[in-house]
Amino acid sequence: MSESTLPDYIAVATELQQAGLAVSPAELHGLLVGMLSGGLGLKDDSWQPLLFDYTNDGLGWPQSLLTRSRELLDLSIKELTAEQSFELALFIPGEGMEADLFEQADGLSEWVNHFISGLGLINAQLAKASADTKEALADLEEIARLGIDEDDDMEEQAQLLEQVIEHVKACVLTIHAEFGVKPSKESETPTIH
Rank of each mutant, 00 (worst) to 15 (best):
E15V: 04
L16I: 06
Q18R: 12
G20H: 11
L21C: 04
A22V: 12
V23W: 00
P25E: 02
A26T: 00
E27F: 00
E27H: 05
E27M: 12
L28F: 07
H29F: 12
H29D: 10
L31M: 14
L31S: 07
L31H: 12
L32F: 00
L32Y: 04
M35R: 04
M35E: 09
M35F: 07
L36G: 05
S37F: 02
S37R: 07
G38N: 08
L40G: 02
D45V: 12
S46F: 02
L50H: 07
L51V: 10
F52C: 13
Y54K: 11
D57V: 05
G60M: 13
P62F: 05
Q63E: 13
L66S: 09
L66H: 05
T67C: 03
T67I: 15
T67H: 14
R68G: 06
R70E: 15
E71A: 11
L72Q: 06
L73T: 02
D74W: 00
E79W: 03
L80A: 03
L80M: 01
T81K: 03
A82G: 00
A82N: 14
E83H: 07
Q84K: 10
S85I: 00
F86P: 01
E87F: 11
L90M: 15
F91G: 00
I92Y: 04
P93D: 07
E95M: 12
G96M: 01
M97S: 14
M97I: 14
E98M: 12
A99H: 01
A99Y: 12
L101P: 01
L101K: 03
F102D: 08
F102Q: 05
F102M: 07
F102W: 06
E103C: 05
Q104T: 10
Q104E: 15
A105H: 09
D106M: 13
L108S: 08
S109A: 15
E110A: 13
E110R: 13
W111I: 08
S117M: 13
L119V: 03
L119D: 05
L119G: 03
L119W: 05
L119H: 03
L119T: 02
G120C: 01
L121C: 04
L121A: 12
I122F: 11
N123L: 15
N123H: 14
A124S: 04
Q125W: 12
L126A: 11
K128H: 06
T133H: 00
T133V: 14
K134N: 03
E135Y: 13
E135H: 12
A138P: 11
A138V: 11
A138E: 13
